[in-house]
Design a binder for these strands. Structure first.
Lengths: 195, 195
DNA sequence: GACAAACGGACAGGATCTGTCCACTTGAGA
DNA sequence: TCTCAAGTGGACAGATCCTGTCCGTTTGTC
């Protein structure tokens, strides 16, 4: 099987420009769709939001886990970046506070996303999640060692508090105002800070 | 139309004993089902949890709103009772704290239940919700006037903080332990309390 | 013991989602 | 500019799940 195999060694050609554009559109739409409708949002809805046909979404992400994984990786990378900045921040509390705030926003927007991919997300997701948790652990311990964060919370309590700050959008018929999340973050951070 | 009409004036006969028992079973099952699967849980699932046939569920609650309304009334009455106790408590902070804690547990368990019935819940739900909110408002103001609750939170921020404390059950692959909710409630109450 | 009330669950009908297919459009290299 | 492979859209078939009804059977009550 000589000449036929020649193509074997060729570098895989880059996708066409419109294909790349559509991939980005689909990803962005999926992120909004998951935030708005939850994890079970249909491919049709994502396609509608992206302004492409369903066929295009299925062609890019034949498996639902691939698509959700890509969305999650997007979010995890953003959080990992913030976590690194938190550790570099000379002010341990300011670093922790910024990380907590972003964590609150992202986990609130995409509640449940990370968890549904517990096992099926593949190594790319698992590795990033571990990395983020490790950075969060270090940022938490650092703040505690600097005596600015109360000692009776564990690092793994932080994500629960963060998600809680932003996940409630409507309770007892009351609708969350635009500043509701920020208000909750403030109160919780005050509760976390060592007096 | 004389003798036929006689039945018109008779008091409506009480349901049979097994029917009453089943109504209670269905209600309890619905409460668990909503907590576990959300508002869109199917009648089949509720019937399964209750250990009755679907027909029985439909016979008792032909309209979904009736069933959800009944569940919600159950919860609201419990909260109203606690709110009244909060106002009677000589210790303004203790009263507020107890109310907040129960609010956290119930709104976390049944996130979204109250809101979906915003309009369709009927007067029985609307009246109870108004009543609860009014009591919550008074309990909050009372705690602020006693200088035990920070002034920069409004009474209508409280339900959002409460629901947030308990709604997160799984974040970034971490699963909430049995004490997670209590821990969050503690931190948030510390954030709310005036130092 | 008789009978009305209540029950269970099979089933039809409807809504929604998944995933494919193919006629048509578009980008890129010659 | 031309050619053609790559890419697209969206109709459609099939699968899945939910709703709501109906009727033969069971059960409580008088």
């Amino acid at each position: 099987m000589p000449p036929v195999g020649a193509s074997r060694d060729e570098a895989p050609k880059a996708p066409r420009a419109d294909a790349q554009r559509n991939t980005a559109l689909v990803l962005a739409a999926a992120r909004r769709a998951v935030a708005a409708h939850g994890l079970t949002v249909s491919y049709h809805e994502i396609a509608r939001l992206a302004g492409v046909g369903v066929g295009t979404v299925y062609r890019r992400f034949p498996e639902r886990d691939q698509l959700m994984g890509a969305v999650l990786i997007d979010i995890l990378d953003e959080l990992i970046c913030e976590a690194n900045q938190a550790l570099d921040n000379p002010d341990a509390w300011a670093g922790f506070r910024n990380l907590f705030t972003l964590l609150a926003l992202r986990t609130g927007e995409n509640a449940g996303l990370s968890d549904s991919l517990d096992e099926r997300g593949g190594p790319q997701v698992a590795q990033r999640r571990s990395r983020l948790l490790e950075l969060l652990r270090r940022a938490t311990l650092r703040a505690q060692q600097a005596h600015v964060l109360r000692d009776d919370v564990a690092w793994h309590d932080i994500p629960f508090l963060a998600q809680g700050a932003t996940s409630a959008v409507c309770v007892l018929g009351l609708h969350a105002g635009p500043l509701q999340a920020q208000q909750a973050v403030t109160v919780i951070l005050d509760g976390l800070r060592r007096s």
